[in-house]
């Protein structure tokens, strides 16, 4: 009992701290709050969520391999220990959801997980069945966020998901795309449907979302999840072959991962970036982006120009 009481008190204190930081919006000053976790407000509710999440595409699809499952458990533990909340997966990712469920069951968690997955099936009648299957695999009672994956059979799935949200079976509903595909259709959905989240690719090397999707997300009060922040690893691999610039370090950025991720979450319309990794050391690097100063617009542009030249 004392333990539970202590845990609840700690959760309350953290929630209070999160609330204080909720009003912190980047873009104005590069030198704002130093140490607290950077959180972003979900427009639909006002709830806040840590601005760095975790993706599971490829990295958590390791099947029943016990050694790889243990490694992924440590990756997830590092993510949660360092303040991460939003974990995103999909039935399309092979065994990733089952591996996540195994990892979650192995970790004693005190902080709330923000569980996000997707519906990915051409069968328009299988929405609830797939959500239930994902809940079983994750070992959770309810998803925080359920998204229609890559706009597959989106009209029927969205209708069911919105009904599930109304019934309290889900907290938020969203829709996803990646690699810059079908942005026009996505925009139409953002304008016409009452979705809470949209997920699309956005990174320092792929800024197409800045043209229309991000302004539209801000205008429509839709939370934005940036996937492929390292372009599937290609971007980070490319920049890591070059020394991290001193001027970026002086501006408070710790390393390339920190810079690439903070570039994304410094955009005022971005709610969360979801890098994926299979390595604990890389997860530690990623989670550095959850703390410290965010780059202002001038620094973001300088970073973009520098990386374009590499």
């Amino acid at each position: 009992m004392p333990n539970t009481h202590h845990r609840r008190r700690r959760q309350l204190l953290r929630a209070a701290a999160a609330g204080l930081i909720a009003g912190y919006l980047p873009g104005g000053s590069a030198r704002a709050v130093a140490d607290p976790i950077i959180k972003r407000r979900i427009p639909a509710s006002g709830e806040t969520v840590a601005a760095i999440g975790m993706g599971t595409w490829i990295t958590f699809n390791v099947g029943s391999d016990p050694r790889a499952r243990q490694q992924r458990t440590e990756v997830l533990r590092t993510f949660l220990d360092r303040g991460g909340q939003l974990v995103d997966s999909s039935p399309m990712y092979g065994s990733a959801e089952a591996v996540l469920g195994h990892a979650l069951a192995s970790i004693e968690r005190t902080d709330p997980l923000f569980a996000a997955s997707k519906v990915w099936t051409p069968d328009e009648d299988a929405t609830r069945e797939q959500v239930a299957r994902s809940e079983r695999l994750w070992g959770i009672d309810r998803f925080d966020l359920m998204q229609v994956h890559n706009l597959v059979a989106w009209e029927a799935h969205l209708e069911t998901l919105l009904a599930m949200r109304e019934a309290g079976e889900l907290r938020y509903v969203g829709i996803t795309t990646s690699h810059g595909r079908r942005h026009r259709e996505l925009e139409r959905i953002m304008r016409e449907r009452p979705i809470d989240f949209v997920q699309a690719s956005y990174s320092l090397a792929n800024r197409e979302a800045e043209q229309r999707l991000l302004p539209l997300a801000a205008e429509r009060d839709i939370a934005f999840i940036a996937n492929r922040p390292f372009q599937g690893g290609r971007l980070i691999d490319r920049v890591k072959r070059h020394p991290f610039p001193g001027w970026a370090r002086e501006a408070g950025l710790a390393n390339w991962a920190d810079a690439l991720l903070k570039f994304i979450i410094a955009h005022p319309a971005v709610t969360c970036a979801i890098p994926a990794t299979s390595r604990v050391d890389h997860m530690r690097e990623n989670m550095q982006a959850l703390r410290g100063p965010l780059p202002d617009e001038a620094l973001r542009e300088r970073l973009a120009r520098h990386v374009a030249r590499l």
């Binding site: 595409w57 050694r67 079908r182 259709e185």
Partner: peptide, 25 residues
Amino acid sequence: MDTLATWLSYRPGDLLMFSPETYRR
């Protein structure tokens, strides 16, 4: 056409859902 264009825009690597390490394992 949209669907075809979408599929054609994928690179082979985009369709693989596992890493070389996991495959070798």
